[in-house]
Design a protein around this nucleic acid. Structure first.
Lengths: 210, 210
DNA sequence: AGGTCACATGACTTGCAGGTCACAAGGAGG
DNA sequence: CCTCCTTGTGACCTGCAAGTCATGTGACCT
C-alpha cells in the first residue's frame, strides 16, 4: 500500500503519477520499467517517489488494485441484473461493458492486457490469489442460471463450456478493441459473435429476455 | 544469428544451453532474464556465452526461430491436407496438433506462451513481422475453403468469424493444456468444443468429410 | 519572529547485469 | 617439440537502476 503522503497529494499530482506509471508499466512491463524515467516524466524528485511508495512493487500493486476495482465497478450493473435477463442478453451486456471500459480508458486497458494472461508469473502469483475466483466463475454462474432457466441445449457440459466461453468472450473483446477501429466492422463482428454463440449454445427454440 | 562456434558445439552441450535458456526466458521473460544465471546453470564460462551469441537478444531470437520452425513443422500435415477434409475435421486436427505439440515439449510450449499475445511489444515487433501473416490467415483460409465447399451458413461473415475462430481455438488449446490434466475431462471438453463450433458455424444439414 | 513538522530534493551508495579482454588450454600440422 | 589457430575462462569494466539520506523549504502554530 502506498504511504499516507501519497493519498494526501493534490489530486492532479497524484493522478499524474498514476498515469505516468500506468504508461510505463503498460509499455515496459514490470522488469523493464524504470523508476528514474517515471519520476523524470512526472517532474518529481527520486526521493519523493519513496515518500509515496515503499518500492516499485508497491506502486505496481496499487495500480493493479485500482484497475481491478474499476473493472469490477464497470461490471457491477451486469452482475446485479443478470438474473432477470436471458443468457445471450447477458453475454452481450458483458461484452459491451468490456468494450466501453476499454474505450473509456485505453491506457488502463493496455495496462490490464499486459498483466493478465501473459508474463509476470512470479509477481502476479502474489497478486492473483486475491481476485482469481471472481472472473473464472462468472461465466459458469451465467451458464448455471441459463441452465436452470431451460435456455441451454441438453448436451451442454457446463464446466467445459464455461471455460470455452471465458476464452471466447475475452478474446473477442481483445479482437474488437485492438483490431477494429471502424464502427461498422465492430457492429458486424458483434452480431456474428452472438449468432455464433446462440446457435452453438442455445436450444433453437430458446427464449428471449424474460 | 548465433555464431558458427555455437553450431559446432557437441549436440548435448548445445541442447543443454538451449534448454536452460528456454526455461530462463519462459520463467523470467526477456527483461527479467539473466545471462549470469544461464551460464551458471549450464556450467559454462561467461566468456563462452559470447563466443556463441552476439548478445542476449541473439539467443532469444534463435530460440524464437526454432520454436516457430517446430510449430510450423508440426502443423505441416494439416496444412498439406486440409483441402480434402471437412471444416470441422480440419479444426479438430489443428486443435489436436496443438495439444500434441504442447504435450511433446511442455517447456517449449511455456516459452511460446510467454512470447505470444502478452508483453514484449518492443522486441517482438522486430520479430513478429517475419511470421505474422502465417498464423493470422490460417483460419481465414480454412473458412474460405469451407465456404467454397458449401459447408457454411449463409449469414457468415468470413473475416469476423476468422478472427473469432483464431481466438477460440487458441484459447481452447490453452485451457486444455494448462487446466485439464485428466484425460477424460479433455475428451469431454474437445467434444463440447466441436459441438459448439458445428452448431454455431455450419449449416445444420452440413456435410461430413468429403 | 521563531520553532516545528511534514514533505521535497537530488547527489550518493550499492548491487547487479550485460558485455569485454587478456590469457590458458587443447588439438592439428609441420 | 614448436606453432598456430580455435575455443574456453573468469576477473574485470561499465553503465544503470533501485533505494537512501542529509539537507532544504514552506506552511502553520505560538
Amino acid at each position: 500500500m502506498p504511504k499516507p503522503t501519497f493519498f494526501g497529494l493534490p489530486d492532479d499530482k497524484r493522478q499524474l503519477i498514476e498515469r505516468v506509471a500506468l504508461e510505463e508499466f503498460a509499455d515496459q512491463g514490470y522488469a523493464g520499467s524504470n523508476t528514474n524515467r517515471i519520476v523524470e516524466r512526472c517532474g518529481i524528485a527520486k526521493g519523493s517517489f519513496y515518500q509515496y511508495f515503499d518500492d516499485k512493487k508497491d506502486l505496481l500493486f496499487h495500480l493493479l488494485d485500482k484497475m481491478v476495482a474499476e473493472k469490477m465497478a464497470s461490471l457491477q450493473p451486469v452482475l446485479d441484473n443478470y438474473k432477470s435477463h436471458s443468457f445471450s442478453h447477458n453475454i452481450e451486456a458483458l461484452f459491451e461493458t468490456g468494450i466501453r471500459y476499454a474505450a473509456a480508458d485505453p491506457l488502463l486497458w493496455r495496462f490490464g492486457r499486459r498483466f493478465t494472461g501473459g508474463g509476470m508469473m512470479d509477481l502476479l502469483m502474489e497478486f492473483a490469489a486475491k481476485y482469481r475466483p471472481v472472473s473464472t466463475d462468472l461465466f459458469g454462474e451465467l451458464l448455471l442460471h441459463a441452465e436452470a432457466n431451460g435456455e441451454l441445449r441438453d448436451d451442454i457440459d457446463v464446466p467445459s463450456v464455461a471455460a470455452l466461453l471465458t476464452a471466447f468472450v475475452n478474446q473477442a473483446s481483445i479482437t474488437v478493441v485492438e483490431r477494429m477501429t471502424n464502427e461498422q466492422t465492430r457492429t458486424v463482428f458483434i452480431r456474428q459473435m452472438l449468432l455464433f454463440l446462440e446457435h452453438g449454445v442455445l436450444k433453437h427454440s430458446g427464449g428471449n429476455d424474460l
